[in-house]
């Protein structure tokens, strides 16, 4: 198995892993970037969300080999106003889903800025990021503590 080369948070990393290993497991178990969390490991909870070339994906369903050469951003590489806003608005309790929520929200804000619609968008392209838009667009991230109101408020504050 040739060595896998991944570019993460602006740095080159090497990992000697079999092709069935997920990007999530490479991050956590091989590179010790444990900020990215494993929740369901089947794409349902969003805790493992990272950015690839600026787009949010779930790293648990991503085979690491597929992402060689891509620009991967994990929570360790994030410095964004959303982080302070989550703290200010109590957008967390246990904090386990927070790295995924933050990465997902960053990706979501870029999608909205680029004019991508959501299921809550009635017009051809989205206008303001309403609370309904935020909730629909963030529905891939589950918070078992139920800090959703704070999460939505934090994102709303940063969006406006």
């Amino acid at each position: 198995m040739p060595e896998l080369r991944l570019r993460i948070n602006g740095e080159d990393h090497k990992a000697d892993v079999a092709p069935q290993v997920s990007l999530l497991d490479v991050l956590r178990e091989h590179l010790w970037l444990t900020g990215t969390k494993k929740g369901c490991d089947q794409g349902a909870c969003g805790a493992c969300t990272v950015l690839v070339d600026g787009r949010r994906i779930v790293s648990c369903l991503a085979l690491a080999v597929q992402y060689e050469g891509r620009e991967i951003t994990t929570i360790e590489g994030v410095d964004h106003p959303l982080q302070e806003a989550f703290v200010r608005h109590d957008g967390l309790q246990c904090g386990y889903c927070t790295p995924g929520q933050i990465c997902s929200a960053i990706g979501m804000l870029s999608e909205h800025a680029a004019g991508a619609p959501s299921a809550a968008t009635e017009a051809l392209a989205p206008e303001a990021l309403t609370p309904a838009e935020i909730r629909e667009r963030m529905s891939g991230n589950i918070c078992r503590c139920g800090a959703y109101n704070g999460i939505a408020e934090a994102i709303q504050e940063v969006a406006s």
Binding site: G43, G46, T49, R55, R56, I57, V58, L61, A62, S104, G107, M108, E111, A114, G115, A116, P117, S118, A119, T121, L124, A125, R137, M138, S139, G140
Partner: peptide
């Protein structure tokens, strides 16, 4: 998100956006 799909085949765009999540639709 494609403008032609949104304009000429809106139910196709709606159907896709009602499936899965933002992260999964990106993949």
């Amino acid at each position: 998100a494609h403008p032609v799909v949104r304009g000429r085949y809106p139910f196709l765009s709606q159907a896709i956006l009602l499936g899965a999540t933002g992260q999964i639709r990106n993949m």
